[in-house]
Amino acid sequence: MRDILRKELKLSASPLAYFFILFGLMFFLPGYPVLCGAFFVTLGLYQSFQYAREANDIEFSALLPVAKQDVVKGKFMFVCLIEGCSLLLMLVAVLLRMTLLADAPVYRTNALMNANLFALAGALLIFGLFNLIFLGGFFKTAYNMGRPFIVFIIVVFLLIFALEALHHIPGLEAVNAFGFDRFGLQLALLLIGLAAFLVLTLLSYRAACRRFEKIDL
């Protein structure tokens, strides 16, 4: 398994996929819809898949002495690794905004969503949807990626819009808590986001393995 991940990292990946991890730092931006940072990370992954397609990566991988489902596993491991790295950057931003920067006026007067644990749950949900819609869709053909990415874009921007609007709805202000306010709720929301990410990714992985086994390269 390490070999197929190493191949993904050294041969298949576009440098943009690594560079776009830095968009996780958008969680520091005030007055900006922070979840767009998660979307930009997936944009880097999309570019990476295009780069790999031009290099005949899928056929090359399928010829290596591994089972076909290991090719799928390699792609999922790579994507989850990039997502995990950007989530770490987002977590750093969230922790700083919860502690040292908790009372910074620039964040307190922010009309948009606060980068708290709930926002991190939102990023996890976005990544889960990317894995479900884009990755799962890509493995229907192991070639066409435009359509699944467009579907993902539509879904993700509706989701970002909904999550941004949530704390303006009376009674739901708590999701935009600052510092350690409503910490129990924030933590619970984060765990729900993590569970959603895991479930969506696992469902997509199983479907992708099934689909990839049947297609002709």
Partner: peptide, 28 residues
Amino acid sequence: GEVKQRVGYSTGTVSWYPRKKIKDIVSI
């Protein structure tokens, strides 16, 4: 996986990873 360990395959002029150095492809 087991069978491909014992089989060598080559496909004409297909270009794998056109922008990577041969030694980097081989090292993987």
